[in-house]
Design a protein around this nucleic acid. Structure first.
Lengths: 225, 225
DNA sequence: TTAGCTCTCAAACGTATGTTTCAAACAGAC
DNA sequence: GTCTGTTTGAAACATACGTTTGAGAGCTAA
């Protein structure tokens, strides 16, 4: 035993519970009892609940960040000065996420769900922490997106990036539930990888959509097919 | 005073605080002190915090539900048996949301944010409540989507609807923050209505995207593990 | 063995939460 | 005015939370 296997057990339990229930709704007592660890161990090893949340994110975001930077490097090198296309950029991100080494079979969906929670439940301190620690690869992704869509105005691009983030975070954060529902309804089995393969073309087409509507084409207005 | 204007003050305060901070993070004491009402009033008038959450949703979802049903009626009647197009269907939904009578200038974004929270923070009891009370217009919207996209397989359509929901819920639930960020970054003012006008074409194009990718178009084709 | 350090444990701390209590204030009907 | 049912008010309730404490176990090195 000795040397904190306790730390990992806490991180494992916290990760899973946070992904299931969110941060505020998960108590340290739930975490420590799931981890079979004493309550005080969290504050001893991490200092506070906030610091534990940060540690949970750091454990999977730090390797992901490296993987992603390397993948971007490879992509830009391959493209020899020409900016990568939108599809390429989206795929490099998606692939880096999917190919991350997982601790278990639920790893990828926990990963996605936590990312989604980081956006929606943002605890203030979490947002600050993530910006500070992982702002760089994020900015780089944004730069690539900008170069891949020179035809868009800054405002158009801004909103469409939000739409992409939303579709991705939302779908991936509920991927487990959505896969189950699909199985029940249509008897079709799906994987997270397949969701990603469907998501990328959806996003890419949305990004390339014609301008925003000027006149609501509701009832009397002429509509496009 | 008399006859519960207390009830409305509680609902107003709760609505705003829930939208700002989420459900678990908003205490009854915050609500009652913002509403200038005694703490016990919540349990007296609503019975419990859960019931208060339901009441907040019911207050704006019930009229919205009626408006939406009427708008769908009008749309289908106008189309004389032919199924409405995707753009029409999306716009009717969007318009019904935008045109809802608002209690104040923040009404529309509170409305959107609460809808977003209902998806992401789903408290179990909330999801059950919403399905039971407002499942019908939702099913109808789904039917219209299906008829508007007969070229899609059921599986394709299923996933793309999730993508649409995600982009919408995510963006709208953070609309205030996103509008602020845009103003800071690019000095551009935006409204919720404008976001909607940008969202609809994005979604419609995404829905019509070509099939899911068979081979990741990354670098050299097949990529390493 | 002893000393020192890391880690675990049960218990308690202070604070905040949702809920309940019960007396007082109030309204409208008689 | 008096009575009756409804609504408010201040206070307390029980429970849950994150955090802290201090004693002690377990290990390593002298």
């Amino acid at each position: 035993m000795a040397q904190s296997d306790t730390v990992d057990r806490i991180l494992d339990a916290a990760e899973e519970l946070f992904a299931e229930r969110g941060f505020a709704e998960t108590s340290l007592r739930m975490i420590t009892s799931k981890a079979n660890v004493n309550l005080a161990a969290v504050n001893y090893h991490f200092g506070s609940k906030k610091a534990l949340i940060h540690a949970v994110f750091a454990r999977f975001l730090t390797p992901f960040s490296s993987t992603l930077e390397a993948a971007f490097d490879e992509l830009e090198q391959k493209c020899q000065g020409k900016p990568p296309t939108l599809n390429q950029t989206l795929w490099v991100l998606t692939e880096s996420a999917i190919r991350m080494p997982q601790r278990n079979e639920k790893g990828i969906s926990i990963f996605m769900r936590l990312l989604g929670l980081a956006y929606t439940q943002s605890q203030g301190h979490l947002r600050k922490f993530l910006e500070q620690e992982y702002g760089q690869p994020f900015s780089r992704f944004m730069r690539l997106l900008k170069e891949a869509t020179p035809e868009l105005s800054n405002v158009d691009r801004y909103w469409r990036i939000q739409f992409m983030l939303g579709a991705t975070a939302f779908t991936m954060s509920s991927s487990d539930a959505l896969i189950d529902i699909l199985d029940n309804k249509l008897g079709v089995q799906a994987t997270v990888q397949e969701i990603a393969a469907r998501l990328v073309p959806f996003l890419a087409e949305g990004m390339k959509a014609p301008d925003k509507l000027q006149v609501p084409p509701t009832l009397s207005g002429a509509t496009v097919a």
